[in-house]
Design a protein around this nucleic acid. Structure first.
Length: 376
RNA sequence: GUGGGAUUAGCGUAGUCGGUUAACGCGCCAGUUUGUGGCACUGGAGACCACCGGUUCGAAUCCGGUAUCCCACC
């Protein structure tokens, strides 16, 4: 259930309540693809870095350990020890990003497992069945994410298929939620807007799915190679047609500035692997810009990663130490780097919420849009 | 003491029937990462080829000597 608390221009301050708690919006979801934040963070660490939502993946958990195993273990919440909100991605994107040889038909997609190469079939029903077994709070619809660039004709047909799939997802979830032994009978479903870079397809699709009474609406298929400006333009065009009383989720995005821009246009939810992946490679976010902790200049730097940051890592450790750990490939290095970056993203949305509450978001946005994505 | 082998970038190695800017891995330096195939990818710097002398138009490569190391035998 979404509640719009305050608006500043198109930017929305809201909250969304679920059986697993209420999330304050805008929010950034922390990505735990296989049921774990890469870099060695446990569910109990997530509380310390102010995580509101954990995101896991249908495709990965279906392959390993298997969604039926997860169901036997009582669902993802029990298995991971995370009692907050969990959103599961549908596997649609993995078909697009991982499988080289894939065969997309109206029924679904056949492709090869990245683990052992065996053939896998996934359609809307399969994706929802898996997500139901995982027992996530929010399930994502099974969609087709088209590559960029893709031709207009192909994209148009793909969007039609994605809409058909969405209706099938909805029907399957309704059926599964009514069964006796369903892990989470209150599971919610978000639809996904597609249409490549074609504004008319995007808008028509959003209008169409807006009528389906979904629990939330995502914009997918962006940040896949198109210029950032194009992404912003699409958001400007599409979001006016998203239901005002439902959360809006921009999938897979993005940099800190992408988030500032997304919020400015009315996005409520984000997720991205960037803070955790980049952390593992030494790229750390600070309120003054991005640093590469591997750089030689930090070898004897005994200041924290970010002197303005109040995360657990910056309270206790120095740049020199974290650089050393990453260079020495000590696991702790990744853990600390990931903790800091995720905290930074969570804090960024916390600050965004604060300024929306105060009615000062525009000033906040102007202050940081030219700083946060810059290398220093 | 005798015989054999080795010596090429910080480290480990390739290259040696003589022929243009000496190759590779690790390390180092820097960059890239957007619904994560778990530690990736792309660049860059760095070597008078142990030393001394010789043969040759030309030597990391052939010859002689010196040094250091390894192995075997006495």
């Amino acid at each position: 259930m979404y509640k719009l608390l305050k608006q500043e221009g198109c930017a929305r301050r809201g909250e969304f309540s679920t059986v697993h708690g209420t999330v304050q919006l805008p929010a950034f979801m922390n990505v735990a693809t296989c049921g774990a934040i890469k870099g060695g963070l446990s569910a109990y660490d997530l509380k310390n870095i102010h995580t509101q939502i954990m995101l896991s993946n249908t495709y990965h958990l279906h392959l390993r350990p298997g969604d039926k195993i997860v169901k036997q273990l009582g669902g993802l919440h029990k298995m991971t020890g995370w009692d907050g909100i969990i959103l599961t991605d549908s596997g649609g994107f993995q078909v697009f990003s991982l499988a080289q040889l894939r065969n997309i038909k109206e029924e679904g997609v056949t492709f090869n497992s990245h683990i052992d190469g065996r053939k896998i079939f996934m359609g809307p029903e399969e994706s929802i069945q898996i997500q139901s077994n995982l027992g996530s709070t929010i399930a994502m619809a099974f969609d087709e994410c088209v590559a960029n660039p893709s031709e207009y004709g192909y994209t148009k047909n793909s969007v039609i298929r994605t809409t058909n799939w969405l209706k099938r997802c909805q029907a399957e979830m309704k059926r599964l939620n009514s069964l006796e032994d369903t892990v989470n009978p209150h599971q919610m479903l978000f639809g996904i807007n597609q249409g490549g870079v074609y504004k008319d397809l995007r808008v028509d699709h959003m209008k169409e799915i807006a009528e389906l009474e979904l629990d939330g609406y995502a914009v997918g298929g962006l940040a896949v190679g198109e210029p950032t400006e194009v992404m912003y333009e699409i958001l400007d065009e599409v979001l006016p047609f998203a239901p005002i009383d439902k959360p809006r989720y921009l999938m897979g995005v993005g940099t800190p500035v992408n988030i500032l821009e997304g919020v400015m246009r009315g996005i409520d939810l984000f997720d991205c692997v960037m803070p955790s992946r980049n952390a593992r490679h030494g790229h750390l976010f600070t309120w003054s810009g991005i640093i590469n902790i591997n750089n030689a200049k930090y070898e004897t730097d005994d200041s924290p990663i970010d002197s303005e940051c109040d995360c657990p890592v910056c309270q206790h450790h120095t740049r020199a130490y974290i650089r050393h750990l990453l260079k020495a490939k000590e696991m702790l290095g990744m853990r600390l780097a990931v903790m800091h970056n995720l905290y930074f993203y969570n804090k960024l949305t916390e600050m965004i919420r604060y300024h929306l509450d105060q009615g000062t978001y525009t000033d906040f946005y102007k202050k940081y849009r030219d700083i946060l994505d810059k290398r220093i």
